[in-house]
Design a protein around this nucleic acid. Structure first.
Lengths: 207, 207
DNA sequence: GAATGATGTAACCGGTGAGTGTAATTACGG
DNA sequence: CCGTAATTACACTCACCGGTTACATCATTC
């Protein structure tokens, strides 16, 4: 009944369905990022995946569902990145670098950028809360790493909360200026940001 | 005809009118920042300044006019800040600090935050271009200061474009997390950001 | 106290877009 | 080859909202 090739190459209907749903989410993400959530109609999303609006409702429940789907799917990927930076065998600074590089790459994707580009009020109260919790987790992780670095003496004493805000601000802003025909590669951005965050702009001689 | 007390304390009609228009703009800015531009109806703005929608039209031409008015008025204030940081008698680092502090304070106001919070697609093409030009000016100023600092040897070699993007990203993100009941004072944010940008997180010992 | 400025009342028009119901059609799996 | 999943066509409801106008009224100023 539940079909055989659950791991096979022949995509079962369920798999195809999931893939199509994801295509919808990604098309939605791109359009939301480009034009904003409320400025994007379901017809546009439907056109982007070459189906009719009615068919969209075969894969999603509502427009909001698309946005929220973008977030959940996006956060899934971000979760993997966060896991990497949690390896306790790595030095704190390296873990911070890992997190920043990963987040930078992630926020450069359509799905990742959605969280930085689409305001929360487009979501219902419940989902907004849920989303905020996820964001807080990521925030907390960097903050913890910084605190730990300070404790270990490998980082200068500072306010981890504000520094975290600064770092994520810089990162979240990337899609706002780098969604152009020839974007700056996210690797280059990450390295430059890392240098800034760790060493600042002043030359070693100045202190 | 043109009335007397142009500088007097009795507000002439023109002055009152300007003040009320500004009240409209500021109410609009607050609502736009909180709920988004398209989610805000003219009725809400009208209610915020305790008039009817009809009266709004006495002071503005359209909804878009309100948004654009926020931007122009906001940019006016920002212009003053930018002027201060252009004093060539000051050392480059001091001018950068001035710019960051000023921008930080500015983006913490309703009018200033609008530029960081409201996406551009809410504006007509023409005005969007105009706004982008203004933003580019500010961007250019910081970038120039950084370039100059590198040339003078007071700053470490780096990509001024990316560093500028990082700094403004961090600054523009402030209203996204600090619009709460008890916000972090913008002065504290600025100092923390300045320290980060200039000296980084690594202690002097680490280099 | 007349003229003009300022504001309120109360509609109307036009457009838009989310979401639904239905029936018909095509593709595919067992 | 039958049944079900997938999809279309399409019309239609429902609600909202922005822009605008016509008219009346209150307030200020000269």
């Amino acid at each position: 009944m539940e079909s055989n090739n659950s791991t096979g190459s022949q995509p079962s209907r369920a798999k195809l369905r999931a893939a199509k749903r994801r295509a919808v989410l990604e098309a939605g993400a791109r359009l939301f990022n480009d034009q904003g959530f409320e400025q994007t109609s379901l017809e546009e999303i439907a056109a982007a995946v070459s189906v009719t609006k009615r068919t969209l409702y075969y894969y999603v429940d509502s427009k909001e569902d698309i946005l929220f789907g973008c977030h959940t799917l996006g956060l899934e990927f971000l979760g993997e990145i966060m896991d990497q930076s949690q390896d306790p065998s790595l030095p704190v600074t390296e873990r911070i670098a890992l997190l920043i590089r990963g987040y930078c790459a992630w926020v450069s994707t359509d799905l990742g950028a959605t969280i930085a580009m689409v305001r929360e009020h487009s979501l219902s109260h419940l989902r907004r809360t849920e989303l905020r919790a996820s964001k807080a987790e990521v925030d907390f992780q960097l903050r913890s790493l910084i605190s730990q670095g300070i404790d270990e003496g490998v980082l200068r004493p500072c306010d981890p909360r504000l520094v975290t805000a600064a770092v994520f601000g810089a990162l979240n802003w990337i899609p706002h200026w780098n969604r152009v025909e020839v974007p700056v590669p996210h690797g280059a951005i990450a390295e430059q940001y890392l240098q800034l965050v760790f060493e600042g702009m002043l030359p070693p001689s100045a202190r």
